[in-house]
Protein backbone atom coordinates (compact mmCIF):
# COMPACT_ATOMS: atom_id res chain seq x y z
CA UNK A 1 0.00 0.00 0.00
CA UNK A 2 1.94 2.97 -1.31
CA UNK A 3 1.32 6.69 -0.91
CA UNK A 4 3.33 9.29 -2.82
CA UNK A 5 3.71 12.71 -1.20
CA UNK A 6 4.80 15.84 -3.06
CA UNK A 7 5.95 19.23 -1.73
CA UNK A 8 6.17 22.41 -3.78
CA UNK A 9 7.70 25.89 -3.75
CA UNK A 10 8.61 27.37 -0.35
CA UNK A 11 7.38 24.24 1.44
CA UNK A 12 9.71 22.06 -0.66
CA UNK A 13 12.62 24.30 0.35
CA UNK A 14 11.66 24.23 4.05
CA UNK A 15 11.31 20.44 4.10
CA UNK A 16 14.42 19.97 2.00
CA UNK A 17 12.98 17.47 -0.50
CA UNK A 18 10.41 17.38 -3.29
CA UNK A 19 8.75 14.05 -2.55
CA UNK A 20 8.38 11.06 -0.29
CA UNK A 21 7.03 7.58 -0.79
CA UNK A 22 5.52 5.67 2.12
CA UNK A 23 4.37 2.11 2.58
CA UNK A 24 1.41 1.52 4.88
CA UNK A 25 -0.33 -1.64 6.02
CA UNK A 26 -3.99 -2.23 5.13
CA UNK A 27 -4.94 -1.42 8.72
CA UNK A 28 -3.00 1.84 8.75
CA UNK A 29 -4.59 2.94 5.51
CA UNK A 30 -8.11 2.02 6.52
CA UNK A 31 -8.65 5.43 8.12
CA UNK A 32 -5.58 7.50 7.29
CA UNK A 33 -6.34 11.21 7.10
CA UNK A 34 -4.30 13.87 5.34
CA UNK A 35 -3.31 15.48 8.65
CA UNK A 36 -1.97 12.12 9.93
CA UNK A 37 -0.02 11.63 6.71
CA UNK A 38 1.43 15.14 7.15
CA UNK A 39 2.64 14.27 10.66
CA UNK A 40 4.09 10.96 9.44
CA UNK A 41 5.88 12.68 6.56
CA UNK A 42 7.22 15.80 8.28
CA UNK A 43 7.17 15.08 12.01
CA UNK A 44 5.15 18.28 12.46
CA UNK A 45 2.08 17.75 14.63
CA UNK A 46 -0.17 20.32 12.93
CA UNK A 47 -0.79 21.17 9.30
CA UNK A 48 -0.90 24.96 8.90
CA UNK A 49 -4.19 26.31 7.56
CA UNK A 50 -2.08 28.36 5.16
CA UNK A 51 -1.05 25.21 3.31
CA UNK A 52 -3.14 23.66 0.57
CA UNK A 53 -3.69 19.96 -0.01
CA UNK A 54 -4.44 18.02 -3.16
CA UNK A 55 -5.14 14.32 -3.59
CA UNK A 56 -4.65 13.05 -7.13
CA UNK A 57 -4.49 16.68 -8.37
CA UNK A 58 -7.85 17.71 -6.82
CA UNK A 59 -8.11 20.12 -3.86
CA UNK A 60 -8.92 18.40 -0.56
CA UNK A 61 -8.50 19.27 3.13
CA UNK A 62 -6.67 17.91 6.15
CA UNK A 63 -9.61 15.71 7.14
CA UNK A 64 -9.80 13.93 3.78
CA UNK A 65 -9.03 10.22 3.72
CA UNK A 66 -6.03 8.86 1.85
CA UNK A 67 -6.26 5.65 -0.20
CA UNK A 68 -3.76 3.19 -1.64
CA UNK A 69 -1.95 4.61 -4.66
CA UNK A 70 -2.90 8.23 -3.96
CA UNK A 71 -0.61 11.11 -4.86
CA UNK A 72 -0.92 13.65 -2.03
CA UNK A 73 0.52 17.14 -2.54
CA UNK A 74 1.16 19.87 0.03
CA UNK A 75 1.88 23.42 -1.09
CA UNK A 76 1.57 27.12 -0.18
CA UNK A 77 -1.05 29.43 -1.75
CA UNK A 78 -0.74 29.46 -5.55
CA UNK A 79 0.66 32.57 -7.24
CA UNK A 80 0.42 32.00 -10.99
CA UNK A 81 -0.87 34.28 -13.73
Amino acid sequence: MTIKVLYFASLREEIGRASDQFEFSDDQLASLKVCQLWKHATGQSTLSEQLLVAINQEYKDQHSLVSDGDEVAFFPPVTGG
Partner: peptide, 11 residues
Amino acid sequence: ALKHQAPFWKK
Protein backbone atom coordinates in the same frame (compact mmCIF):
# COMPACT_ATOMS: atom_id res chain seq x y z
CA ALA B 1 -9.83 31.03 -11.55
CA LEU B 2 -6.32 30.37 -12.89
CA LYS B 3 -4.84 32.83 -10.40
CA HIS B 4 -6.51 31.15 -7.43
CA GLN B 5 -6.59 27.45 -8.41
CA ALA B 6 -3.83 26.61 -10.86
CA PRO B 7 -0.74 25.36 -8.99
CA PHE B 8 1.95 27.81 -10.09
CA TRP B 9 4.36 29.56 -7.71
CA LYS B 10 6.60 32.59 -8.25
CA LYS B 11 9.96 33.17 -6.65
